[in-house]
Amino acid sequence: MSETEKIPQAKNPLKGLFNYQWILKNIPFFLFLSVLAVLYIANGHLADKTVRNINNTTKELKELQYEYKTLKSEVMFKSEEQQVIKATEPLGLKVIKETPVRLKSERVNE
């Protein structure tokens, strides 16, 4: 016998693990893992979309708040007495300096 025949060949431990029968036997598990991976990716995309929608809604809300405050300040300014007087001058309306007179009506008793 030669020396090469005496040395036992080292077996590859992974060779027996990946044979055809083993792969066929574990196909349902591989499909399960594939479905989990797809769901994980879809969940990530859904979360990103939700965050984008929240950010857009927040920006829109801030813009509407700024618009509300601007309009409110304009209304407050235009409702001041001097501004009302200026706005009604072209219509011929003027402020009366006299105090108002109270009218009294007499009821007829029947």
Rank of each mutant, 00 (worst) to 15 (best):
A42P: 01
K59P: 03
M1T: 09
T88K: 09
N56P: 02
V84W: 03
F32Q: 07
V35L: 05
L61V: 08
Y68D: 05
R107H: 13
E67P: 02
I85T: 06
L36T: 01
R102E: 11
K59V: 13
S2R: 12
L33M: 14
K25D: 13
R52D: 08
F30N: 06
K15T: 01
S2C: 07
V35F: 07
G16A: 11
L31K: 02
K49Y: 11
M1E: 08
K94Q: 07
K94M: 10
K62C: 04
F29E: 06
I7L: 01
S105E: 10
M1P: 04
L71T: 14
A42W: 10
L24H: 06
H45F: 12
V51Y: 00
L46P: 00
E74Q: 13
S34A: 08
R102M: 10
E110V: 15
S79N: 04
R107T: 13
L91W: 05
K15I: 07
I54E: 00
V38M: 08
W22L: 09
N43L: 04
K11I: 04
L103H: 12
V95G: 09
P8S: 10
W22G: 04
F30V: 14
P100E: 03
K69T: 14
L39T: 04
Y20A: 12
K78V: 13
K49V: 03
E63A: 14
S73G: 01
V35K: 11
G44M: 00
V101S: 14
K69D: 05
V101L: 15
E81V: 15
K78C: 11
E67F: 10
F29W: 08
P28L: 04
L24W: 07
I96T: 05
L71M: 13
L93G: 03
N12S: 07
M76F: 13
M1F: 12
G92D: 08
P100Y: 02
Y20F: 08
L14C: 05
F29A: 09
L17C: 08
Y20W: 03
R52V: 15
M76A: 15
N19E: 09
L64F: 07
K97D: 06
P13S: 00
S2H: 10
K25G: 06
S105A: 13
K104W: 06
K59C: 08
S34E: 09
P90C: 05
T50K: 04
R52G: 09
L39G: 12
L46Y: 12
V95Y: 04
E98A: 14
V101I: 13
K25T: 15
Q9A: 11
H45S: 01
E110H: 06
R102P: 02
L91T: 02
L61D: 00
E67L: 15
V38Y: 02
N109I: 15
I96S: 15
E3H: 14
A10P: 02
I27K: 00
V75G: 00
I27W: 03
K72A: 12
T50F: 01
V101F: 12
I27R: 01
E98I: 02
R107V: 14
E5T: 13
E98N: 05
Q65H: 11
L103M: 14
